[in-house]
Computed example of a mutant assay.
Amino acid sequence: MQYKEFGKTGHRSSRVIFGAAAFSEVSQAEADNTLALLLDNGINHIDTARSYGDAELRIGPWMKQHRNSFFLASKTGMRTKKEALEELKQSLSRLKTDYLDLWQLHFLVDKQEWTTAMEEGGALEAAIEAKKEGLVRFIGVTGHGIDAPKRHLESLDVYDFDSVLFPFNYMMMQNPQYAEHVRLLLAVCDQKQIAVQTIKSLARGEYGQKEKTFSTWYDALSKEASIEKAVQYVLSHEQVFLNSTGDIHLLPMLLKAAGKPIVRPTDAQMQALVRDEGMSALFK
């Protein structure tokens, strides 16, 4: 497993971050088996959220023995200070910890929600207050959809966040406008030493009329060779971290791919993958 400084936090994080959305509907036994897999593969960073079903409850029992083994991140989807602080209280209780290493304003893309979170009495104030009180060490912002990188640029004009998170895969980067906003965001993050987290590495597209196969809300790649190309494509961009898949059954193949020497697939190889897998952009 490769490791990289997580922005200016001082934490040297595994390039693959465990995305605990995969724990939204699993048993504690399944979660504990995943813990062993994470430790065996050198994963030292967990990313969860209050909104991820039972995920925080599944991670909480690990913290008594393994709190120092992981950089622990969670998120709030609340937009006001009062509501966000209440969610933080719940997250700390569910995770059985006194503090979070990273607390993130979740899915902050909608313009009105963004305004509410950033203004007086908003969620950003909650995060700043929580940091002063030692309840969180660092503050991040996350986003889904086609506007996420653009909105993150606006967020970074308001506050010096420690991390950002947005969708990043080959199909998304074929959208010229999206790719340009990503390029601008990466430049700002490089200049300010802001950690860059990415999601949806294994997205094949929407389920549409297909029967849902995985716990991910989107259709995911499932062949080992296809997963390897998708993972290698993301990790070959040295600035970014890859937040893992939302399905525990796909996780072993993702980790296997990440454990190999990182070589960026050629454009011809990625185009062949798109054709063979029938891939489409998840966000348009």
Rank of each mutant, 00 (worst) to 15 (best):
M1V: 09
Q2V: 08
Q2H: 10
H11N: 01
I17K: 04
I17C: 03
F18I: 10
A21D: 09
A29C: 03
N33M: 15
T34R: 12
T34V: 15
I43W: 03
N44A: 02
H45K: 01
I46M: 00
A49N: 00
Y52F: 10
L57Y: 09
W62C: 04
S69L: 10
A73I: 01
A73H: 01
S74N: 02
T76Y: 00
G77A: 08
T80K: 04
K82T: 13
E83R: 07
E83D: 15
A84N: 01
E86N: 11
E86V: 14
Q90T: 12
R94W: 05
L95P: 01
K96F: 06
K96S: 15
T97Y: 01
L102C: 05
Q104E: 07
L105W: 02
L105G: 05
H106V: 04
H106N: 04
L108A: 12
V109N: 05
Q112P: 03
T115W: 09
T115M: 12
T116S: 11
M118C: 10
E120W: 06
G121W: 06
G121K: 07
G122C: 01
G122W: 00
L124T: 04
E129I: 13
R137E: 11
F138T: 10
R151T: 15
R151V: 15
R151I: 15
H152D: 04
D157P: 06
D157Y: 03
V158I: 14
V164L: 12
P167Q: 01
P167Y: 01
M171S: 05
M173C: 12
Q174D: 01
Q174C: 08
Q177S: 15
Y178V: 09
E180M: 14
V182N: 11
R183V: 04
L185M: 07
L186Y: 08
V188Q: 11
D190S: 14
Q191W: 06
Q193D: 12
V196L: 04
I199E: 01
I199S: 04
L202R: 02
Q209N: 13
K212Y: 05
K212S: 10
F214D: 14
S215R: 12
S215A: 14
W217A: 12
D219F: 10
S222T: 11
S226H: 14
E228Y: 04
K229E: 00
A230K: 02
A230S: 05
V231P: 12
L235W: 00
L235N: 02
E238F: 02
Q239W: 03
Q239T: 06
F241T: 04
N243V: 15
S244V: 08
G246P: 05
I248W: 03
L250S: 10
L255P: 09
L255W: 01
G259N: 15
K260D: 03
I262P: 09
D267C: 13
M270L: 13
M270P: 04
M270W: 00
A272F: 03
V274Y: 09
A281T: 10
F283Y: 15
K284E: 07
